[in-house]
């Protein structure tokens, strides 16, 4: 971590909690309640104008189970920062940062689809990769490899189709 990046971060955020990261990227631990305020400060005061990705890690059966990562890029200073927010297993809610970074919309949808994290205030939290009507979140560690009734939606479609053709004159 270069000294200037850290200085800039410390200037923008009072009492920022840095954690170790294996790849050397400056990583901050943020409470769920402070996430939006932190992101806003990083965007407006530290020059991190681009949200590169939002993703999550499931550490089942450890608690807290889910960690959400927001990674930001400063095009001006050519450096990156990562925020990690821990969520307990029963209460997977996080405020959406769609207002700050419109590009977060799809990444939060994917994160919801794969991990079941509810982004409050997103407004359009539909599934992105899995079909609508799918019940599970496949990247959770307790999701079985072969899935749970992977053919359910097809069978339901098939049944409806047959019933419709039986009713037709």
């Amino acid at each position: 971590m270069s000294a200037t990046t850290r200085q800039r971060l410390e200037r923008a955020l009072e009492g920022a909690r840095f954690v170790e990261s294996r790849d050397g990227m400056p990583t901050l631990e943020v409470e769920r309640e402070q996430l939006i305020a932190t992101l806003r400060k990083l965007r407006d005061e530290a020059g991190f104008t681009s949200l590169t990705f939002v993703t999550a890690i499931d550490r089942y059966p450890k608690e807290p189970r889910l960690t959400v990562h927001h990674q930001l890029l400063s095009i001006e200073h050519c450096d990156r920062v990562r925020l990690q927010t821990e969520l307990p297993g029963e209460d997977e809610r996080l405020p959406s940062c769609r207002e700050l970074f419109p590009g977060a919309s799809f990444m939060e949808r994917e994160c919801f689809d794969m991990f079941g994290i509810q982004f409050d205030g997103h407004g359009d939290l539909r599934r992105l990769l899995m079909p609508p009507g799918y019940l599970h979140h496949p990247l959770r560690k307790d999701f079985p490899h072969h899935g749970i009734e992977p053919d359910r939606l097809y069978r339901e479609w098939d049944r409806d189709r047959r019933q419709a053709s039986e009713c037709a004159p």
């Binding site: 079909p131 992977p150 053919d151 939606l153 097809y154 479609w157």
Partner: peptide, 8 residues
């Protein structure tokens, strides 16, 4: 499976 009904 998402594509299956289209194929059918």
């Amino acid at each position: 499976w998402k594509m299956a009904h289209a194929a059918r």
